[in-house]
Amino acid sequence: MLKTFELALPPFHFQIQTDLPLVVDNLKAMYGHGLLDVINGHTHLAYIDYKLHITHTNGFRRFYKPQARFKCDQYEPFKPLNHSQAFAMLEWGMNWTIASYEMEHVVIHSGVLARGDEAVLFPAPPGSGKSTMTAHLAFNGWRLLSDEMALITPLTQSVVPFVRPICLKNQSIALAKQWFQDAAFSSIAKDTHKGDVVHLAAPVHHSSDLIRPAQIKAIVFPKFVANAQLEIVQLNQAQAMHQLADNAFNYSVLGDKGFNTLIGVVERSACFVITYSDVQDVQAFLEQEVLSQANDIVGEHYA
């Protein structure tokens, strides 16, 4: 049966329709009371930004290797996936939707975490251990603004929260389950193009965490290497720009406004490539060497 939900996920409101129980269960586990049931047409939110659908495909396939398809309104950007991957597909579909239509922010493929109101961007390709780092910091005194997308207000260093579950892959899944035993995990999506994938509900300590912007102070390109010693290489601005632009979704649509935003962020941030095997080393470095001491008072968030 087709169910309708509303999801208040600042700065956006989504409507989600699904006939997949797996998606409903995961939505409830991941978003808690941000998820609102629409029963008998009773809506909750004053408006909707995007209408998303994740449903079974039609035809005989429904009975033989059933698949799920994602649509943003009438548009279907992806090929269908095995229905066990439906929730991961919805999460990626939300990312696709924002990356495709949102031009009010410069959007960068990046984790964003803040200590107080000082933010660090972690733009990185898959396999860099970015999400493991995101998860560790989010549960250890830092505030998660986003695991996948940095929404930067044009021509500022200000990044707006878009708090979403953290997408964990392969080996990091077992690690995270061991680290955060009380946290909520989604069911596992096996054999996706990213390997096995599990989503971890974002820890939200204050309702203001969902809307309070933070100022970008540093950009860290993390590189996980098993058993490696911590190695920190400071990037010059040209190198940092070169790497950051590779991760920017929509600067080309925003034109010189997008270009100048990226330049401004790079010139006002400390930029590093960090090779690490222990996330705590990275945390210590950022807290002691990069961010201002004044922010030590945010210890109240410690888990």
Binding site: T57, N58, G59, Q67, R69, K79, T192, H193
Partner: peptide, 14 residues
């Protein structure tokens, strides 16, 4: 057979 049985598996679009 469902709308997509003929489409090539294209990981890139995911």
């Amino acid at each position: 057979f469902g709308q997509h049985i003929f489409t090539k598996q294209d990981q890139g679009t995911q």
